[in-house]
Write a protein that binds this DNA or RNA. Structure first.
Length: 265
DNA sequence: CTAAAATCCTGGTGGC
DNA sequence: TGCCACCAGGATTTTA
């Protein structure tokens, strides 16, 4: 399930082969992936040039000529591969973006949750996203202020992309472990000092994960190996790396949640 | 406001 | 060995 570090890894890998290229054709193999008008996508994209590629939260953002922006979201099982049109076809390719030079960008997505958006106004896609956890503008002070007047359970709040953008199930659990805070804790009971610790933990976990090119599992593989560094995620009933207590698993907001009952308060 | 449940999907898993 | 019910899970929508 690609989260911020996986999307960042993919964006970095796509820049070299794609920036400067112009689209020639779009082949839509699973129309439900396209969240904007399919006809418009097919008629407008050909001829547009990729000027730059960025990440915003878990979205890939392609800044195109003529003030258009293409957004891709990988959701659970999406991946992006650059291939030649002569390469073997991919049964899980849902949208194929062809370029004039014979190469293509293949949006593959086994579970079909991913999305494609072609817009002029970027706010239609990313207008409600919360701050970037690794952006310099998110200071410790402004991070703590995000929690003002918020109530409820910590984990669902951190998963809320309008609260903070880019965190998913894995990195929330890992950040909570590193900050020694239980994901089940009520945010109104978390002290500013603990929030400071959480702020640093989120940055540390994400930075380390990016350094490892993200995590490789489910259907996404980018050579990342951060999955070998999980402290709690997927380690139910295994000993805590710090204290040997058995890692607990509970369901929170419908998602499996892992924590050390001894280290995390 | 918080939050739970349903929704979209399919490969993998566990039970028998 | 084979069949099948079941499940994860990001974000959105619906319902409380």
């Amino acid at each position: 399930m690609p989260e911020l570090p996986e999307v960042e890894t993919i964006v970095r890998a796509l820049r070299k082969p794609l920036v400067g290229r112009s689209f020639s054709k779009v082949t839509v193999l699973w129309p439900n992936s396209i969240k904007t008008c399919v006809k418009t996508l097919k008629s407008e994209l050909p001829g547009k040039k990729i000027q730059s590629i960025e990440r915003r939260g878990k979205y890939l953002r392609f800044n195109l000529s003529d003030n258009h922006t293409l957004f891709l979201h990988l959701k659970m099982s999406g991946d992006l591969l650059v291939a030649s049109k002569n390469d073997a076809s991919d049964p899980y390719a849902r949208t194929i973006f062809s370029f004039k030079d014979g190469n293509e960008l293949r949006f593959r997505d086994t579970r079909k949750f991913g999305s494609v958006h072609l817009v002029k106004n970027v706010n239609k896609v990313i207008g409600n996203l919360g701050p970037e956890p690794l952006d310099k503008s998110l200071t410790a002070q402004s991070f703590i202020e995000l929690f003002q007047n918020r109530r409820g359970t910590l984990k669902p709040l951190l998963l809320d992309q309008t609260f903070i953008a880019g965190l998913g199930n894995i990195y929330v659990d890992e950040s909570c472990f590193l900050s020694k805070i239980r994901p089940t804790k009520k945010v109104e009971r978390i002290k500013p000092k603990e929030l400071m610790t959480l702020y640093k933990a989120i940055q540390k976990v994400l930075t380390k994960a990016i350094k490892h090119n993200g995590s490789s599992f489910d259907s996404v593989y980018r050579g990342g190996n951060f999955q070998n560094h999980f402290a709690v995620y997927g380690r139910t009933n295994e000993p805590c790396i710090k204290c040997k207590s058995l890692i607990k698993r509970v369901i929170l907001g419908g998602r499996s949640t892992h924590f050390c009952p001894n280290c995390q308060k």
